[in-house]
Simulated assay, not measured.
Amino acid sequence: MSGNGAEHQAASLNAAGLHRLVEVLIERGYRVVGPTLRDNAIVLAELESADDLPRGWGVDVSPGQYRVRRRDDGAAFGHSAGPQSWKQFLHPPRQRIWAGTRDGTGEPETDGPENEAPRYAFLGVRGCDLAAIATLDGVLGRTDYPDNAYVGRRRRAFVVAVNCTEPGGLCFCASMGTGPAAGPGYDLALTERLGGDAYLVDVGSPEGADVLAAVPHRAAGDDEITSARSEVEAAADTMGRQMPDTDLRQLLIANRESPQWDEVASRCLTCGNCTMVCPTCFCTSTQDVSDLTGEHAERWREWSSCFEFDFTYVHGGGSVRQSGASRYRHWLTHKLGTWHDQFGMSGCVGCGRCIAWCPTGIDITAEMNKMAGDD
């Protein structure tokens, strides 16, 4: 699943065509997941039809705040990132990795990649989140010791990206090089136009071309293509936030002993919200459990956070990072700096979720700009 659609003529869909696209994906056995309105937030959930999309809803975000609001049009994708990312479907928060019995009767149960992982179709993947999936591909998939469960889910996924034309107040994907246009990795990419009445469609894979062929569409005109591309390009200049234009890795190295870490720690609750909503944080821990009789045992893998006090616990020696300042410094330095050393890329895609869902409103772009002397 790669490409940018350059080898295919862009197509045009109307609102009915979007409905049919969802129907076709369901008919082909995919569990279609997309944005929907629930509990006063735009969340990702399985769709029964395109009617479940949050048409006419947008969001207002700022540090530590998130509010849905009514739009004055019927746009289905007229909102920025919500509290969830696609990571939860490819790298689940909790997964059983082994089960067995004391007497050894029967084969141990395992949840492996070939245990029929769901065939997901992701509808509405933004450029930042598409880059996050690519980041997880590098961390969990293309390694010497890949996470086979992740690889199985990813291989079966169909991705419908959405190019952004209205960045949110906390978006900074342009300064991270991940948006607002979707990069490689999609099967189809949509650009929503005319308040949700029309969609420009780019094809990024043979699978995407095959699905599009089953959906009523027409070739897009030159004016439509130019207008849609221009709207996406213009979005790069209306980002709500921006990282400093400097080498972030070197900036963090130079400020390793900065008093700014203690100042941030005075506000940080070390709750781990930022790592839970981050679309690229991948750390896990394992837990062994048994039933009351002790006859059945299971091993579960669960999301973990470097903000947890026990995350770096060493037997007999306690926790390596005992202060909130050291834990925050570790998270930010890894995310923006040493991730490059490990994986050859940044661990941040500029989605802004960590800013919106931090209870005390800590803004990593503000912290980095302050560190760079730009604030």
Score class of each variant (00 low, 15 high):
Asp247Gln: 13
Phe282Thr: 01
Val289Ser: 02
Asp223Thr: 14
Glu224Arg: 08
Arg241Trp: 13
Arg256Gln: 14
Met243Ile: 15
Asp291Cys: 00
Asp262Asn: 14
Ser227Asn: 14
Ser266Lys: 09
Glu224Trp: 05
Leu292Asn: 07
Asp247Asn: 15
Thr238Glu: 15
Ser230Trp: 10
Arg249Leu: 13
Pro216Ile: 15
Ala235Thr: 04
Glu302Arg: 10
Val289Lys: 02
Asp247Tyr: 13
Thr286Tyr: 02
Pro259Leu: 09
Ser227Ile: 11
Thr284Ser: 04
Gln242Pro: 12
Gly240Leu: 11
Glu263Asp: 14
Cys278Val: 06
Ser227Lys: 14
Asp222Glu: 15
Pro244Cys: 15
Val289Leu: 06
Pro259Ala: 13
Thr286Gly: 01
Asp291Lys: 00
Ser258Phe: 06
Met276Pro: 04
Glu224Val: 08
Phe307Arg: 00
Asp245Lys: 15
Asp223Tyr: 10
Trp261Lys: 03
Ala236Cys: 06
Gln250Glu: 14
Gly221Glu: 15
Trp261Thr: 02
Cys271Trp: 04
Pro279Ala: 07
Ala236His: 04
Glu298Trp: 02
Leu292Phe: 10
Ser258His: 08
Asp247His: 12
Arg299Phe: 01
Leu251Cys: 03
Thr284Tyr: 01
Pro259Lys: 10
Phe307Gln: 07
Ser285Cys: 09
Ile253Met: 12
Ala254Cys: 09
Glu302Lys: 10
Val289Phe: 02
Ser304Tyr: 03
Asp247Ala: 12
Ser258Trp: 07
Phe311Glu: 02
Asn255Cys: 05
Thr275Arg: 06
Gly272Leu: 05
Val232Glu: 01
Cys274Gly: 11
